[in-house]
Design a protein around this nucleic acid. Sequence first.
DNA 1: TGTAACCTAGTGGTCGGACCTCTTACCTTT
DNA 2: AAAGGTAAGAGGTCCGACCACTAGGTTACA
Lengths: 237, 237
Amino acid sequence: MNITALERPASLVDSVCQQLAKLIRGADAEKKDRWLPGERSLAEQLGVSRSVVREATKRLEQQGMLEVQHGNGIKVVDRLHRPLSDSLSLLIPDVAGRLRQLNETRLSIEPDAAARAAERATKAQLLELRRIHSSLEEAPDNDNAILCDLAFHHAIADASGNLIYRLVLDSLGELGLASRLRTIGRIGKAPAAAHHEAILFAIENRDPETARQAMRIHILAAGEDMDLPALRTREAK
Amino acid sequence: MNITALERPASLVDSVCQQLAKLIRGADAEKKDRWLPGERSLAEQLGVSRSVVREATKRLEQQGMLEVQHGNGIKVVDRLHRPLSDSLSLLIPDVAGRLRQLNETRLSIEPDAAARAAERATKAQLLELRRIHSSLEEAPDNDNAILCDLAFHHAIADASGNLIYRLVLDSLGELGLASRLRTIGRIGKAPAAAHHEAILFAIENRDPETARQAMRIHILAAGEDMDLPALRTREAK
DNA sequence: TGTAACCTAGTGGTCGGACCTCTTACCTTT
DNA sequence: AAAGGTAAGAGGTCCGACCACTAGGTTACA
């Protein structure tokens, strides 16, 4: 018989963290304001002391999943507003630079995500995409249209079967919203809907390359005035 | 007299964190093995309860600055070995899934980063890349080679002129390290160095497309056994 | 009747002290 | 020396108490 290192039991805090994380990502997008039970209640339900619950919630708060409010309770942070790194605005002070870098990153991520979605989307995810798409066409004003656009891009990331795509998109956070606002503002609601239609059609037909190109075009439309050439010559020596 | 929002006192934990962080940053690179006083001792010296010290040290541990060892003590983590974000392991429990998604994401990000680096890298950044590359060739063992590989990829992200690329890479954290370990383990140090040489040559010659392809090949070499086809057929209906 | 001040229940924040498990280093034995 | 045993001290967990804060209901006053 082989001797193998035995698995040591995870610490209580680790276990509680996993349980809470599962709970949090369970039905995340459904409600806007979700609150966890109080520390005392959680401790009782989980069968551990309040210290353990406390340490777990603080750990998840640091990861941006929760917000522990003194005197009030424990709030689940909306996924859309979860920063992976909250220092982005500190690190890139100028708005133009942020937008340029943001669009570049989207251009790296989203076409691939669309291609993967074309390969892997489940029937339910296809239906969801179609549903979001129609709600864009019926959006009464620009504000709603922007939210639909946002939801569409996130749904594609979800359908890509790669959670990291979604996380990166989330981490772009409100900056992403600003960028999309430009899209709708620049090219109008109807053309944006046409872009979406092209992307969705390619995904439904399981055509990854077309989906990639369509998404690429859609994002480029927003970044048209980002004048990459100006950057290219910056250090041309 | 103007009325201004008064600064609310930071929580005790915050204060302790700052003190400890200052302490840690103080003479970081000097010694190899640095230990903090025990929790009880720290609590007494800082004039707070052990709970507060405990929460502060755990927070700093999560940020990768400390390592709290059961039964042993609190160790200052060497800067080179600091992992960046462990939240991924909570969201994607299975290791195989993490690696697959990680490689996909790298495949989206890094070829573009290499292309941008070819367009924009400054002279100083080119020299830095070349320096890191030679240190890989001279690396005495696999451990050092892995660190050099890591530094190379990060330097390219830095040279891309897009900070978000670097942030995303960072947020992949220790998972990135695991993935690179596979690269070196699978294809060996010399072939990896050859890949790097190809990438670096393209960047130095301001050839974005070649840089993109070379980086793509380099990453694919690590993910060869990720069998995407198996995934592709999963929901082929 | 409306509004302002107050009160209260319930939340997280901090405390300290108890007991557990675990690691290390020293000591004893061979 | 090498093996095993032992004890000191580290972090892990628990408990119960009290403090600080918030929100919402209640009261008192205009």
